[in-house]
Design a protein around this nucleic acid. Structure first.
Length: 239
DNA sequence: CCCTGATTCGC
DNA sequence: GCGAATCAGG
């Protein structure tokens, strides 16, 4: 019995949208992660693929920079892009897709409360991320999402998704999130020990009482700056 | 120029 | 159904 293994880890080269991947996609999408992050997390898929899938799944567009204020008036079509075909056809492969930049200051998800935006778990006394980093040298099937730009030397991406890893087996993983548990992220997505708070939420909030206290801080009068910088999710990934 | 998501459209 | 190409706003 070679069974022992039979994990889901390497998804073969046939990257298909399995239930689990879809679940991860949903959670992250709803959790406020950007398509790029999700794509990176899932691995093997481009940001566009994630977006496309998300829409097909019926997930809606959260704060989109573009359609955010799309008005309902449009007698004329502002979209005269008749795509004359002959694009993909010519280039079935070879695409320098621009993967994603890990660090994205753009949007921090978080519920829209009037208070300040939640902040990241902060570098807790520095004891969150310093740990392992990647698994697997290079799969044989990692799509060629070459880094077109001169970003950083892409570290060996771990192929194991946000699967139940022994490291976080007893912690609240992405897939364990629910409306009842605190969604405060501990660490960053992708980290081997990344997990969520998991405490019972403060009724009406996505976080537990403790983290609500951190997420919703009253604006202090200038002069009394606090040390902790904000942002829960879309933060600078410290890789 | 970078990012973001939305949409189109060939496969 | 999938996702690259493209669009479009910030």
């Amino acid at each position: 019995m070679q069974a022992a293994a039979s994990r889901h880890e390497i998804q073969d080269c046939a990257m298909s949208w399995t239930d689990e991947r879809i679940a991860t996609l949903k959670k992250m999408w709803e959790g406020g992660s950007t398509a790029s992050q999700i794509a990176e997390e899932l691995g093997g898929v481009s940001r566009n693929a994630v977006i496309g899938k998300a829409h097909r799944l019926g997930l809606k567009s959260r704060p989109s920079p573009v359609k955010a204020n799309e008005k309902k008036k449009a007698p004329a079509k502002p979209k005269p892009a008749p795509k004359p075909a002959a694009k993909k056809t010519a280039k079935p492969a070879a695409k320098p897709a621009a993967p994603a930049a890990p660090a994205k200051p753009a949007a921090a998800p978080a519920p829209k409360q009037d208070a300040a935006i939640p902040s990241q778990p902060l570098p807790n006394k520095g004891s969150d991320l310093p740990k392992i980093v990647s698994v697997g040298p290079g799969a044989s099937c990692v799509r060629v999402r070459a880094i077109s730009r001169h970003r950083s030397p892409r570290p060996p991406r771990r192929l194991v998704p946000a699967k139940p890893s022994p490291e976080i087996a007893d912690k609240t993983s992405l897939l364990d999130l629910s409306d009842k548990v605190c969604r405060w992220p501990m660490g960053h997505p992708g980290e081997p020990d990344f997990h969520f708070c998991g405490e019972a939420v403060n009724p009406g909030f996505p976080y537990c009482v403790e983290h609500c206290g951190r997420a919703y801080q009253a604006q202090l009068p200038r002069g009394a700056r606090r040390p902790p910088p904000p942002l829960p999710f879309g933060g600078p990934r410290v890789r």
